[in-house]
C-alpha cells in the first residue's frame, strides 16, 4: 500500500502544483505582512504616543477600575482579570501587543485564511486528482495494473491528505519566516485567551483561560487542517464525478465561495448550518469570535464536516468502482 501512496504522492509533487501554491504563498504572505504592518502603524498613529508601555499601564489601570464596578457580572470579572493578566505579561516581558512578533502573525493568518484562502488552495490541489487522469488519458494504464481499483483510489486520497498537510506546514513556516523579518521572531510563549463559549446568543466567558501561543497555534492549525481535509475530501469526490479538470475545479470553487457568501448574506436561514462550507471557520471557536449562524458549536461543525466527508468518500469510491473507463 505504501508504495502505491508514494507513487501517487510523487505524481502530485511532479505535477508541480504544490510548488505553484508555494509560489502563491511566497507572493501573498509578504503582502499580508505589509498590510498588517501598516495597520499597526495606523493604530500607533491614532493612539498619539509611541510609548506602548505607558498605554498598556493605562489600560491595565482602566481595567482594574472596571473590575471594581458593581454592575459587572461575575464571569465578565473573571474575563477582565484574565485580560489584565495577559496585559501584565506583555508589560513584564516587554512585548508590544500591537507589534508582537511573527508567531502572532502566524496565528492571525490562519484565523483569517481558514475560511477562504486555504480552502481555495486545497481545491486547486485536489480538484483534478482523478479527473486529470481522464483528461490525460492515463487512467487506462493506471487501471490495467494488477491492483484493485479501490486501492488505487485510496492511495490517491491518502496522497492528497499528505499534500494538504504539507500545504498547511508550508503556510505556517513561510508566514513565520517572512513576517518575522518585520515583526521579529519572538513571542511563542505569549499567553493567548481561549475557551470562549456561546449559549443562547450570549458569550459565556466563565471557561476562558490563557494558553501559550505555540499551543494555540498548534490547535488552530489542527482545526484548519481538519477544515482543509474536509474541503479536500469533497473536491476529491467532485474530481471523481466530473471528468474535466476545469469543470471539477469550477464546481468546487463555486461551492467554497458560495458557502462563505451565504453565511454572510443569510445567517438567519437555519438550514445553512447543514451545509458543509459554512463550517469552515473552525478556528473561531478557539478565538471566541461570534458565530454568525445560530445553533453552531464546535462539535456540531465537526459533525457536519465529518458527515459530508464520509458521504463524499462513499460516493467517490462507489462511483469509481462501478465506472466504465472508455475515455
Amino acid at each position: 500500500m505504501i508504495p502505491l501512496i508514494y507513487n501517487e504522492w510523487l505524481k502530485m509533487v511532479r505535477k508541480k502544483r504544490i510548488w505553484v501554491i508555494t509560489l502563491i504563498l511566497l507572493v501573498l504572505i509578504p503582502i499580508f505582512t505589509y498590510a498588517q504592518f501598516r495597520t499597526i502603524q495606523q493604530t500607533v498613529a491614532e493612539m498619539g504616543t509611541s510609548d506602548w508601555r505607558a498605554l498598556l499601564q493605562q489600560q491595565i489601570i482602566d481595567q482594574q477600575n472596571r473590575l471594581s464596578s458593581s454592575r459587572l457580572p461575575e464571569e465578565w470579572r473573571d474575563w477582565i482579570k484574565l485580560s489584565i493578566q495577559q496585559q501584565q505579561y506583555y508589560l513584564d516581558h516587554d512585548i508590544n501587543p500591537t507589534a508582537p512578533g511573527a508567531p502572532t502573525f502566524v496565528r492571525k493568518f490562519i484565523e483569517e485564511s481558514v475560511s477562504l484562502f486555504l480552502p481555495l488552495l486545497v481545491v486547486v490541489l485536489a480538484a483534478d486528482i482523478v479527473s486529470s487522469e481522464h483528461t490525460a488519458g492515463t487512467i487506462k494504464s493506471l487501471l490495467t495494473r494488477p491492483v484493485q481499483r479501490w486501492k488505487v483510489l485510496l492511495s490517491k486520497y491518502l496522497a492528497l491528505l499528505l499534500s494538504i498537510s504539507v500545504l498547511m506546514m508550508i503556510t505556517a513556516i513561510l508566514s513565520y519566516l517572512i513576517s518575522g523579518v518585520i515583526f521579529g521572531y519572538q513571542g511563542w510563549n505569549m499567553p493567548v485567551l481561549t475557551g470562549f463559549q456561546e449559549q443562547n446568543g450570549q458569550l459565556i466567558t466563565s471557561f476562558v483561560h490563557l494558553v501559550p501561543q505555540w499551543k494555540y497555534i498548534l490547535m488552530a492549525y489542527g482545526l484548519a487542517w481538519f477544515t482543509c481535509v474536509a474541503v479536500g475530501t469533497l473536491s476529491f469526490m467532485v474530481s471523481v464525478l466530473v471528468r474535466g479538470t476545469a469543470a471539477s475545479m469550477g464546481v468546487m470553487l463555486a461551492a467554497v465561495i458560495s458557502g462563505s457568501l451565504l453565511a454572510q448574506l443569510a445567517p438567519t436561514w437555519s438550514m445553512l448550518k447543514y451545509f458543509a462550507f459554512t463550517h469552515l471557520r473552525l478556528t473561531d471557536y478557539l478565538s471566541g469570535k461570534p458565530i454568525l449562524i445560530e445553533g453552531m458549536s464546535l462539535s456540531f461543525s465537526i459533525l457536519v464536516l465529518s458527515v459530508w466527508s464520509i458521504l463524499a468518500i462513499l460516493i467517490a469510491f462507489i462511483t469509481f468502482q462501478r465506472r466504465d473507463v472508455l475515455a
Binding site: S165, M168, G195, L218, M219, A220, G222, L223, W225, L286
Partner: peptide, 11 residues
C-alpha cells in the same frame, strides 16, 4: 497537524 486537531478538540 492531526495532533493539533486532537489537542484543540480536547481543549
Amino acid at each position: 497537524l492531526s495532533f493539533g486537531f486532537f489537542l484543540s478538540t480536547q481543549e
